[in-house]
């Protein structure tokens, strides 16, 4: 991934100075994805129940996501702000699901 650059005019010397933009703004602006990974032990019924509880998803949506985890090995179950994503991952870890965070490519 190439980092965006921000152009500043230097106050002390003429010419253009290119400064790499810090990752911070980028990470705040990008959606944070909550990913749930398959594991051999957690039961389908349990994973469905956890999705309903943590995200408030209706049973049908929870089952679709659970099957995606089961068949594809992972599923993007929620996307949004970093703070909320971290909260959800913490909840999922509390239910012992294997969950991670990813930031979307711009």
């Amino acid at each position: 991934m190439s980092k965006p650059t921000v152009t500043f005019r230097s106050a002390t010397s003429p010419g253009i100075v290119h400064i790499d933009e810090t990752d911070t703004k980028e990470k705040h602006d990008l959606p944070w994805n909550v990913i749930v990974h398959n594991d051999p032990v957690n039961m389908m019924s349990y994973v469905t129940m956890v999705f309903q509880r943590v995200f408030g998803y209706p049973r049908q949506k929870a089952e679709v996501l659970m099957m995606e985890v089961h068949r594809n090995g992972r599923s993007l179950v929620w996307s949004g702000s970093r703070e909320q994503a971290e909260h959800y991952v913490h909840q999922l870890h509390g239910h012992q699901l294997l969950a991670t965070l990813e930031t979307s490519e711009p």
Binding site: E86, A99, T100, L101
Partner: peptide
């Protein structure tokens, strides 16, 4: 496994 890495 019980305390997984959140962002490998």
């Amino acid at each position: 496994r019980m305390f997984p890495d959140v962002k490998p």
